[in-house]
């Protein structure tokens, strides 16, 4: 069972390039959500923790696995909730309720609403 070590290494190398490329286009205003969002993704260790706890034998393995699942759940749930809270707040002037005295700032492509895209 298992794809063999070289298969895993291949996947690892390709994933490294994808990770690097995908992030290279992120604007600096989204760096904090990016840190938080990628933080949530490594919460996938929850799947590993579940496998470990599911196959645990004896008190030591059970306690370690139990603790791992608690910590990994914290990571996943906290990570996604915090990121969503941050991103929820990025809305543009157009999404805002109408306000007096708008300055004629150019509305470029990026100023469409986050809400509009999400609905």
């Amino acid at each position: 069972m298992g794809p063999g070590i070289m298969g895993l290494v291949t996947v690892f190398v390709l994933a490294a390039f994808v990770g690097y490329e995908v992030v290279s286009k992120v604007p600096s205003i989204l760096h904090t959500p990016l840190m938080s969002g990628s933080n949530a993704i490594h919460g996938i260790i929850l799947v590993g923790s579940m496998i470990i706890l599911g196959g645990a034998h004896g008190a030591t393995q059970e306690s370690l696995g139990f603790l791992a699942v608690v910590l990994a759940t914290l990571n996943v749930v906290g990570g996604f909730v915090v990121t969503d809270r941050m991103l929820e707040m990025f809305k543009s002037r157009q999404a805002d309720r109408s306000r007096a005295g708008r300055s004629p700032a150019p509305a470029n492509g990026a100023s469409a609403t986050a809400k509009g895209a999400a609905s």
Binding site: A16, Y20, V22
Partner: peptide
Amino acid sequence: TLVGASGILL
């Protein structure tokens, strides 16, 4: 690895 690589770039 996605997180590892993107984190280093960030």
